[in-house]
Design a protein around this nucleic acid. Structure first.
Lengths: 242, 242
DNA sequence: CAGTGGTCTAGACCACAGG
DNA sequence: CTGTGGTCTAGACCACTGG
């Protein structure tokens, strides 16, 4: 595999170019998994960058779980592929990515003062106006989830058409409110009769529940959601790291 | 609040001392949330450290969600408290921390070749020997979870007594296999009659399911688990960040 | 324009692991 | 002891923001 040389005129930071180069060498097998990297001084020399820059590149891959460093020992390759941390995406994005043709039906949408528990979750004063809406999400025609959301109106005005055509997170991102942090609680319970009817399931069928509050980089609460998913058709996959 | 001065003879890195100092100033309210920090050059001067060291301290707090930086703008305080990323802990630890008096009953324990799906999850050759065990976890006397685990024998030999007195993760940590990364899948289903009996629940009651594979820092698979939790008594709380 | 954070360098010393 | 990564410095230049 061809590895591009470093380009010092590029706006891409040097350390990032170096990291990408290492990543390619590892993924292509030229640097074997389980093997050791040269020491950072020699690597820096070989690539013609300073040691701090080399360290930054290595550190970047360490944070992504590809390398492990030990003082006095060296740097070892532990994974050929990067493990991604938990994704902060919406169901819509997930389905679209896996080719499941998501569609959405808006059952309700209005602007109202935030109920107490929602205001508390969002960390806004009671009575703050939010857009409140209820959606059913389908995947390849099958009902999958029943979703309730609140988005403060001063974050983003939302319209039915937008929500039917695109995912909430996509709309938030487009408006500059990039979700960066979220508290989630995942549980399970039996579906009520009404929920079962909407989801095309039987009463008492197990459903996954998820409530989430999401904030952007500036710490501004952008979304509160309380959703249920058909347990027979959905589960959450997470990669955790500490 | 008194803030300790920097100690250049301490083995604690300077940048970490600086970060702790900033953290205290913010938590004590001397630096107001929403306010801006001085620029990094002046801060470095004021504390008598170099700019790179100051940057590293600030970066540390940025990664923990306490500060937000924007080029050309400055550094803003967005959270008084640090948000922790997802915890990688066992149910036992969680219960113990919240004062729920966890107890464990070992229903079964043996050493056997890993079943195919377990070997695949652990990424070890088929037939690798694992300790396989089934536990019921109680909280304040009530059954809470039914847990199945596999731990490769060459990672750690496990005995009933140990597992009854302590959590699996505590045992792994004590043996030097610190779980650092995990893939989890969380779902839900209805309990079988046998499961319901063991959990003191009724047949068909909703249960949370969780399967997990955990690795240590060196990329070595240390644990595979397949658990069910009574939905009426347990849910997962997560803080995600990207 | 002035002020901010982002990148990069060359070199120094230290702490830890292993033979 | 040698070799490794970990920390720290002083200074340079660049890129972006806002007035």
């Amino acid at each position: 595999m061809k590895v591009p040389a470093l380009d010092r005129t590029s706006p891409v930071p040097l350390y990032f170019q170096v990291a990408g180069r290492l990543e390619q060498l590892i993924e292509s097998g030229q640097l074997p998994v389980g093997g050791r990297l040269e020491n950072e001084v020699e690597l820096a020399d070989r690539l013609g960058v300073s040691r701090p820059t080399m360290r930054r590149a290595i550190q970047y891959l360490v944070e992504r779980g590809m390398l492990v460093r030990k003082r006095g020992i060296g740097t070892q390759i532990v994974h050929p592929k990067v493990r991604r941390p938990v994704e902060l995406s919406s169901l819509y994005d997930d389905l679209a990515k896996s080719g499941k043709q998501p569609t959405t039906r808006i059952r309700h949408l209005d602007v109202r003062p935030a109920p107490d528990h929602v205001a508390e979750a969002l960390g806004v004063p009671e009575g703050t106006e939010v857009t409140w809406f209820e959606r059913i999400r389908f995947a390849t025609g099958e009902p999958l989830a029943l979703m309730h959301n609140a988005v403060p109106v001063d974050v983003l005005p939302l319209r039915r058409d937008d929500l039917e055509a695109r995912g909430l997170y996509e709309l938030l991102r487009a408006a500059g409110y990039v979700p960066r942090m979220a508290d989630q609680v995942v549980g399970a319970r039996a579906a009520t009769a009404a929920e079962a009817r909407l989801l095309g399931d039987t009463r008492g069928a197990p459903v996954l529940t998820m409530t989430r509050t999401a904030w952007d980089a500036g710490g501004r609460a952008v979304e509160y959601g309380s959703h249920i998913y058909r347990a027979s058709r959905y589960s959450f996959a997470l990669t955790l790291s500490s």
